[in-house]
Amino acid sequence: MSIRLKLAVSFVALTLAGTAFAQASAGKPERIRGEIVSLSGDTLQVHRRSGDTVTIEVDQKAGVNAVKKIELADIKAGSYVGAAAMPGPDGKLTAKEVVVFPEAARGTGEGHYAWDLGANSTMTNANVDTVVQGTSGRDLKLSYKGGSNTINVPVNVPVVTLIPATRADLTTGKKVFVVATPDKNGSYDGHVIVVEKDGVAPPM
């Protein structure tokens, strides 16, 4: 499997798990954010932001990616992005982070749905129709099947793309984002891992 295809498969799993999160219950995928405590064999220990430590069983098929920082100026008309955003007082969406998908992953998780970076946060996976320079960053006009919206991206918001990573990158202290399914014994089955690399932590 090529690197581009591996990334595409990982993104598909990540985003489909994300859409399911809105109806999260036992057996439904969850998003786990935190810091790696240890990796022993296939068992990953993660200290979550919420304060608890969880056990995640990671099989050999699980996708492992890292993030690479890019510039806001790298987002062009025609880019396919995933933008987590929050509504402002005027109702306008303001980005909390933006992931620019590799071309091989175009169409992944297309749509606009609830996210969990804060109250009323959303995720929009869509094509960038236009980019307009503003006084507070750039406005991205996004279109997806069934709709469109405009998201303001401030200059200080993390903008990243994903790059391949391996289990060797899953070391103690690294920030991590994991899509996993709760198991009956209280642990999780990990499907997708996005790990910090070269000091760039996953912002999603």
Rank of each mutant, 00 (worst) to 15 (best):
V128I: 13
G173V: 10
E57K: 04
M123F: 12
G111Y: 09
V64D: 05
V194N: 01
G91L: 05
V176N: 00
G18E: 02
E196A: 04
K141C: 04
P102L: 09
V9K: 12
K96Y: 07
A201R: 14
L117R: 15
R48C: 12
E57L: 05
V179G: 07
V179L: 13
N120C: 00
I163A: 03
A85I: 00
N152S: 02
L14G: 00
L117S: 14
P203A: 08
S79L: 05
P154A: 12
P182S: 09
R33I: 10
N125I: 03
G186D: 08
A66I: 07
N65M: 14
K184N: 07
S143N: 05
T19K: 12
G91Q: 02
K197C: 12
F177A: 14
V155D: 14
R33V: 09
I32P: 00
D129A: 11
Y144T: 03
S2C: 06
T150G: 03
F11D: 08
L117W: 13
K61Q: 04
A8G: 11
T124F: 11
A85E: 05
T172L: 04
V58T: 10
G41S: 11
T108Q: 07
T108N: 07
A85C: 08
F177N: 09
V195E: 15
K145N: 14
V132S: 10
E103H: 15
V153P: 12
S25D: 11
T94F: 04
T43Y: 06
E71Q: 10
A24K: 04
D116E: 05
T150H: 03
M123A: 04
S121T: 15
T122S: 06
Q45F: 02
V67Y: 07
Q45Y: 09
I36W: 03
L39E: 04
G107E: 13
I56C: 00
G18A: 14
T181Y: 08
F11C: 08
E110M: 11
A17C: 07
A24S: 12
A95N: 08
G118E: 13
E97T: 15
A119L: 13
S136C: 02
D90V: 01
K6D: 14
V58N: 01
M86I: 06
V100H: 02
K145Y: 06
R49Y: 04
G111Q: 01
V132A: 01
D169V: 02
K68E: 14
L140C: 06
